[in-house]
Design a protein around this nucleic acid. Sequence first.
DNA 1: CTGAAAGCGCTTACAG
DNA 2: CTGAAAGCGCTTACAG
Lengths: 337, 337
Amino acid sequence: MTTSRNASTIRDVARLAGVSVATISRYLNNSAPLSADTAERVQAAMTELDFSPHPAARSLASNRTHTIGLVLHRIEGDFFTPLMEGIVSVTESQNFNLLIFTTSQSRKLDMRLLGSTYTDGLLVFLDSLSDEDLSTLHQAKQPIVLIHRSSPVDLNLPMVTIENQSASKQLVSHLIETHQRKEIAFLSGPKKNEDSFWRETGYRQALLEHSLKVDESLIVPGDYDILTAQSSVQQLLASGKTFDAVFAADDVSALGALTALKEAGIEVPAQVSVVGFDDQRLAPFLNPPLTTVHAPTDMVGSTAADILLKMIRNSEVQSETLLPTKMVLRQSCGCKK
Amino acid sequence: MTTSRNASTIRDVARLAGVSVATISRYLNNSAPLSADTAERVQAAMTELDFSPHPAARSLASNRTHTIGLVLHRIEGDFFTPLMEGIVSVTESQNFNLLIFTTSQSRKLDMRLLGSTYTDGLLVFLDSLSDEDLSTLHQAKQPIVLIHRSSPVDLNLPMVTIENQSASKQLVSHLIETHQRKEIAFLSGPKKNEDSFWRETGYRQALLEHSLKVDESLIVPGDYDILTAQSSVQQLLASGKTFDAVFAADDVSALGALTALKEAGIEVPAQVSVVGFDDQRLAPFLNPPLTTVHAPTDMVGSTAADILLKMIRNSEVQSETLLPTKMVLRQSCGCKK
DNA sequence: CTGAAAGCGCTTACAG
DNA sequence: CTGAAAGCGCTTACAG
């Protein structure tokens, strides 16, 4: 295959500007001061030739890829789009490329793809990589930022996530104070999910602070999944257990709760309040419009990417960043529009 | 910056196996027959050294990037996740990388990023690239597959999209035949959107074939947008216009219609049927569950990627592929569950 | 502030 | 079937 390589190279630019290729390179990378005169001639030559440096050549010579990787289990869910949007907004503005690696494919991911010949650093979402793999990469000096999960203690990797606990506490308190709810069920997220853990913690605190005791039988699995949540609520109903509200660990499971309650002919919010977490795009359009907590997922993505790029440039970064969330009151809790 | 480059190279492998680097390269690329004996020694040396070829070096020497690009306006909407899922499933299995380029950023996209030094080919979604840009890239021999849009006539680029027309016709016919609807509104998509065009064509055909005349005042903008759709239906209602069904060009605008009707106290489907298109993830959970047409967006992504990779390998590919869609009956049309 | 030259790790004619 | 060598387009000590 002999694809013509017609684009101009750094040699062409050097020739036209009457300088050496080293000078062009320095201009390109701003890696040494140039005389104003030279800089001008170089710039002129570059624009005349419509020069664009060859990324592979740069990468090979400099041992930098100008690329970061995003590692996640699978491409799915409602978080993916806003997360990507946030990440790509910063990679595009900083002229970095983004590669995506999924870890729960049939073929096991070749760990070497996560090394420094492919990327300058990694964004790792949730538990898509084991502590062991994280450790291996860290030892190999690969910069890593964790998203929505905390660092293995010995590694102390920077992480970015959202504030879960106080928002959850505020939301549940709202149910208690404003809507006089006393028997509030919690639809938990996946087992080891940290967000769910803190949301549950906030829930428990709110109950305790209002002198309501926590009824463990009202804490049931939602798994961030419509059907799981739906079936958990169905079982709760069938068990004869009474409850006047459900706090779902995310909007998706809240939708499952709404569905189960509707099936059972129970009115929301008249008989049972339902609230979620995340404030996904469709939350305002559910029936009734969902009271929830807004999670700034795009900002999680952009912040994590910013931090990673700083690490790549050897700047200091903060080890934990908790992005702010905000309760948003709609009708499913009992508030009027 | 002196990052240690500790990984083994093709030279190390050659030395250990007692052959030349050319032989290793040939083994790697399967570009020439090797004696069984040699192949064995090479393989052994590679595994012993945990060798992984350097992508930038490969790319620089071979003038191939092993990377494809996805070009789209913005990262948004419900199609993005399934589309990516489909694309990534094939790029991962074929050891290709994927780069994303958005074209409606504040900074204009540098067209050189779409050239062959960055990618071996491009997937172009909707009208994210102008005909002129497509033409430029095509002349530069960049392989291109169009997604959800047809080719500029003179370029004859392969495209993949879904079957819109007959599914729409079937859906509208269902409204007429099974639910005796006679005054069916259409919520159109964005102006030049081809999918919307064919959905509207199917709608018109269904009406004509059932001897219903098309009332142009019942064709109003939905724009694949909840609020636009909602407001269009509100206006229709306010105008005193009667209608007993609405066919929304996509599920999102169907949700807008549902919202407007609910506000107005109109019962769906008792008084007005509402149907959509796409069968997005939440469609079964709307209120009432949405009758719609299933669009295999993940398959659109994987098919387009497959075709692009074939083009990159100089295989023949078909110029148009229409992926099958399927009506899915739920309750919003009037069907019982 | 600038240049000459080695080197990054591969691929690929060219020879045999 | 295999090897020696040039070359892909940059960056970066080393010198001056």
